[in-house]
Design a protein around this nucleic acid. Structure first.
Length: 556
RNA sequence: GGCCCAUUGGUCAAGUGGUCAAGACAUCGCCCUCUCACGGCGGUAACAGGGGUUCGAAUCCCCUAUGGGUCACCA
């Protein structure tokens, strides 16, 4: 057993270079002056550059919590594992999040830049801080060096497995826990590397209860493992860094994936050992994916849609993804949206208590539907600008066509848009090309070369006859009503009923109905059976293009 | 395996002891319509199972099953 002076000696022995004190940092990073109820949250990724859907989800929760309470949302980079570091990773993460409208009030802003007065915000630059608090823990007899090698640890584990005991470094298995100062000195003099471990209370049966803002009251065993605080390279583990950083950065609400729930007792224990006020914890359930008949966490390795850049590539507007996620956070968002169709989604207040405690299945069909609604609400101008921007990066051919004649492109996007019931055909910018290709001869030609999509129910001869005759009566300067009147008249001449009802009443009397005829014209002009308003399409195309399409169809 | 968390229609979910168990997406049917879409109307479809507690249970308790998470000098 160490007494107080021995602890102090040990602390100096382990951290001879640490001169600052915890008190120094308490003054350096004072409690934030914020309005009542303001929340301080953070996003704390490893600098891998990869942003998982689950991370976006969690960061969205954190961001909203902070910003809807006039609080602070900051970015901290958890780069204590060099193996995870990827060149340019930080910038990638920041860029990926900004595409979804998520920005930070303080923290890391780029590879070598940051803002805010609670930094540094990169853990690798906070070594002195961690060591200062580690030293204090040693002084208090709450942490100690452990010289076990990997092999030693393996041996312990093997022993425990054999006896069917809980594996880990604790109690009587914690061989270095009660080393004397002399023993430590000797190991050190032999140049042996060490890790710093917490001296956990040795009572495996004691229970720990805490209130999670999402999961509710959770009861678990108290932590009794002597978890590593400082690795042998001197860098802190997540556990220690989290506690030190979130205290010093004055985080009020720790929002993170629920894979952290099992280590929450450890974290709370550390807060208590350091005599710090505990933050609130909110453990977020993972986003799942259906595989066969069972669900599992969306996987970075297996699922392309787990990577948020997937949505950028597909051309989902960032706001669509965000609204989908907001709805996953609080499902009453949909009701709110219906009542507030014009409000920005940031006006919707999220509530942690309303979050689901179990993992939600990621539903790309629903995302697509929501996105269609959002795009349908955009102006032609917006659709043009956003699809152009997308095309610039992902589809140079489309980009060239859209920028070649801006006015023409915007007229295309104006069809069936802006009215009471806007067309819902575009969910993502990837959908644009297949929806508008027929307005461009080069794309249309390529498409028609694959074959025309005339219905099989009408013989080719009849198709040709209809197009040839229709081309003769087509008058490009007709108003919409006149155009349709003329179509109906044409139908009667050709032996088709001028409306569907008449045909249905007496199918034997006609070759078909007006829908069949317009269907043929539609395919001739667009090579699609489903399109927006045919009249509008032909008006936008212009007379020449329309007539050429008729020719081309007849001579196919 | 230990420890946690969970389980309402195909999916997201409302629901906190008394509801004909909302709504949305998907699906199906009908209507509207030049097609498709949009829109409108309607349909199919759920409290994992078993025990309790209670006048009464999706809601509370226990057990079972299933799913998920976690048990590193990774985060």
């Amino acid at each position: 057993m160490h007494n107080l002076t021995q602890n102090r000696e040990l602390a100096d022995l382990l951290f001879p270079d640490i001169q600052k004190t915890p008190e120094y940092y308490e003054v350096l990073y004072p409690k934030r002056q914020l309005p009542e109820g303001a929340k301080v949250t953070r996003f704390a990724p490893s600098p891998t550059g990869y942003v998982h859907m689950g991370s976006l989800y969690a960061s969205l929760v954190s961001e909203r919590l902070a910003h809807q309470s006039n609080g602070v949302f900051f970015l901290r980079v958890e780069d204590t594992d060099k193996k995870r570091e990827v060149e340019g990773g930080v910038s990638n993460i920041i860029r990926a999040l900004s595409r979804f409208g998520i920005s930070f009030d303080e923290g890391v802003t780029d590879v070598d830049d940051e803002k805010g007065s609670y930094g540094p915000y990169k853990q690798s630059e906070r070594m002195e801080i961690y060591k200062t608090f580690a030293k204090r823990l040693v002084e208090k007899g709450l942490a100690y060096p452990c010289f076990c090698s990997e092999e030693d640890l393996d041996k312990i584990r093997a022993q425990q497995e054999e006896k069917k005991e809980t594996p880990g470094y604790y109690g009587e298995y914690a061989v270095h826990r009660n080393s004397t100062l002399e023993q430590v000195r000797e190991e050190l003099s032999r140049g042996k590397p060490f890790v710093l471990r917490v001296k956990a209370p040795d009572n495996p049966d004691s229970r720990f209860v805490f209130k999670d803002l999402i999961k509710g009251d959770v009861e678990m065993p108290e932590n009794f493992q002597d978890i590593v605080l400082l690795k042998s390279d001197g860098l802190p583990t997540y556990h220690f860094a989290h506690v030190v950083d979130d205290h010093l950065m004055r985080t009020t609400h720790v929002t993170r994936g629920d894979e952290w729930l099992p280590s929450a007792p450890l974290h709370v224990q550390l807060f208590e050992m350091l005599e710090w006020e505990k933050p609130y914890f909110a453990h977020i359930s993972p986003i799942m994916k259906m595989e066969g008949s069972s669900k599992r966490k969306l996987s970075k390795r297996k699922d392309p849609e787990a990577d948020v850049s997937f949505y950028h590539e597909q051309g989902f507007p960032g706001i669509s993804v965000i609204e989908y996620l907001v709805n996953l956070i609080n499902s009453n968002f949909e009701d709110w949206r219906r009542e507030n169709p014009e409000s920005p989604n940031t006006s919707f207040k999220i509530e942690l208590e309303r979050m689901s405690v179990s993992g939600a299945m990621f539903d790309i069909v629903k995302l697509t539907d929501m996105s269609k609604d959002i795009v349908a609400g955009m102006t032609a101008e917006e659709v043009y600008n956003m699809s152009l921007e997308w095309a610039e990066e992902y589809d140079s051919e489309l980009w060239a066509l859209l920028s070649r004649d801006e006015k023409y492109a915007k007229r295309i996007f104006s069809i069936d848009r802006g009215g009471e019931k806007p067309r819902k055909d575009i969910a993502k910018w990837l959908d644009v090309k297949p929806n508008i290709f027929y307005f461009f001869d080069e794309l249309f030609t390529r498409d028609a070369a694959e074959g025309y999509n005339f219905p099989d129910t009408i013989p080719a001869d009849e198709v040709n006859r209809l197009i040839r005759e229709y081309a003769k009566v087509y008058n490009h300067s007709d108003s919409k009503d006149m155009w349709f009147d003329r179509v109906k008249e044409f139908c009667e001449v050709m032996g088709y009923s001028k409306d569907v009802k008449t045909f249905k009443k007496n199918p034997g009397a006609y070759k078909g109905h007006v829908g069949d005829v317009t269907g043929i014209i539609r395919v001739a002009v667009t090579n699609r059976r489903n399109t927006p308003d045919l009249y509008e399409i032909m008006q936008v195309m212009g007379e020449n293009m329309v007539m050429e399409r008729f020719d081309k169809a007849i001579n196919r």
